[in-house]
Simulated scan of single mutants.
Amino acid sequence: MDNIAGTKSSLTWAVHISVAVLVALWLFPTVGLLVSSFRTADQIATSGWWKSMFPSEQNLTLRTADPAIQVQTGGMFVIEGELFEEGSPAVISVWGTSSREIDAYTPGQTAELKEGTITVQADGAYRMESPTEMTGSRGQRVFVTAELPPEFTFENYSKVLFSGDNTDSLAKAFFNTLTVTIPATIIPIVIAAFAAYALAWMDFPGRALLVAFVVALLVVPLQLALIPLLKLHLGIGIGKGYLGVWLAHTGFGLPLAIYLLRNYMVGLPRDIIENARVDGATDFQIFVKIILPLSFPALASFAIFQFLWTWNDLLVALVFLIDSTGQTTVMTKQIVELLGTRGGNWEILATAAFVSISVPLVVFFAMQRYLVRGLLAGSVK
C-alpha cells in the first residue's frame, strides 16, 4: 500500500539522512573557510578551525630586549622585561634557549647562557643576569610553548583586498570578475529569451529541427570549441579582451538557456496568448508584456547557473583574456597565482577563497526560491 497516492513512503528517513549528509558536506568546508579567514597563521598551523573558540598551544620564537638597555645592579648586569605584549593572557608551559630543546625548562627555572643566565616565568616575564657586560646587537632567542587564547583578526582581509602588492590584492581581480560575469550573464539571457519565444509560440518551417539542434548543442564539450573559437576571435581582433570572453560565455551558455526557457514558455497557458492576439497585440508586445513577466522563475534559474559558471570559470578566462600586465586578471586566476607564491600562507588562501565564494553565495540564496520552479517548469503538463 506504499504506492497509494497520499501515503508516506517508508524510505522517507533515507531521504532526510541523505539531505542532511549533503548539507553537512557543503556546510563544513564553507564554515571552515570563513573561520580560517579570520585566524592568524600560527593558529591555523597549530589547530583546526573547529577549535578556534578554545585556547590553543603554540610554539613561538621570541626575543629578549636589546642588551643596550642592561643596567648594573650590585655588581651584576641585568636585563628585565616581558616576552609577550603587556596584558597578554598567554601562559608558558615549557621553554628553552635552543631550537633542538625547546622544552628543556619549565617556568621559573634558570638556563645558562654564554653570557650569564636567564630565568623565564609563566607569564613571560624574564630576568637576565651576567657578571660581565652583555654584548651583541640583538636580544637572546627564547623558544616557548604557550597556551594562547582565541584570536581573530581582519588583517587577512585588509591584506588580500587592499594590499598594494599585486600578488596579494584581490580588489582589482574582484572588479574584473564582475566586469566579465555581469555582461556574460545578461547577454545570453536576452538572446535566449527571444529565441525561446520564437521556438515555443511562432510557427515557421524547420522549427522542430532548430529545437533538435539546440538540444544537440548541449552535449558539445566546451574544450572542443576553445581553439577554433580563439582562432576566430584573434582573426577578427577580439581575442585579447573582455568582448571576446563575453561572446565566448554567451555562445557556451545559449544552448542551455534556450532549452530551459523554451520548455518553460511552452507550458504557459495558451488562452492568455491567443486572447492577446485577438485584442491586436503583436508578437513583440506579447513577448514583453506577457511572456517575460510570467517567465521570471525560468530567467532567474538560468541567471543563477550562468552567473555561478562564469564567476567560477578559469579555463575560458585563461584562453580569451590574454593579458601579460594583469589588468584583466579574474579572481580564479589570481587565486591560482596565490597558490604558487603563497603556498604556505593558509590564512591568505582561506581569505581569498572565501572572498571568491561570497558573491555566488549571496546570489544563490537571494534567488534560490526561483531555482526549483524554473527547473521543473514544463516537466509536468
Rank of each mutant, 00 (worst) to 15 (best):
D2V: 11
Q223E: 14
L62C: 04
P221C: 11
V144P: 02
F296S: 13
A68Q: 03
Q109F: 10
R373C: 05
E115S: 15
V362N: 09
W49E: 13
S379Y: 02
F84W: 00
D165G: 11
W13D: 02
S47K: 07
F175C: 02
A366E: 11
T250K: 01
W50C: 12
L33P: 09
I186T: 14
I4M: 02
T145C: 08
T30A: 15
T153R: 08
R63H: 06
T132Q: 08
T97M: 07
D2Y: 11
A14V: 12
A303P: 00
E155N: 15
V336I: 03
Q306L: 05
L33K: 03
I118K: 00
P228D: 13
K8Y: 07
K289T: 13
D42L: 06
W50Q: 15
F204L: 14
Q140C: 06
V142L: 12
T110M: 01
E347W: 11
G267Y: 11
F143W: 04
F194Y: 14
V363E: 02
L299E: 04
A193S: 10
I322R: 07
T328R: 06
L33N: 03
T73R: 05
L34Q: 01
T73H: 08
V144E: 00
L148M: 13
L314Y: 10
P55S: 15
R141G: 12
W13N: 00
S37C: 05
Q70N: 06
M134I: 07
W201L: 14
K333I: 11
S163Q: 09
A125P: 06
S324A: 12
P29H: 14
P269Q: 11
T179A: 10
T250H: 02
A41M: 11
E86R: 11
N3T: 09
F174C: 00
V78M: 04
R141V: 15
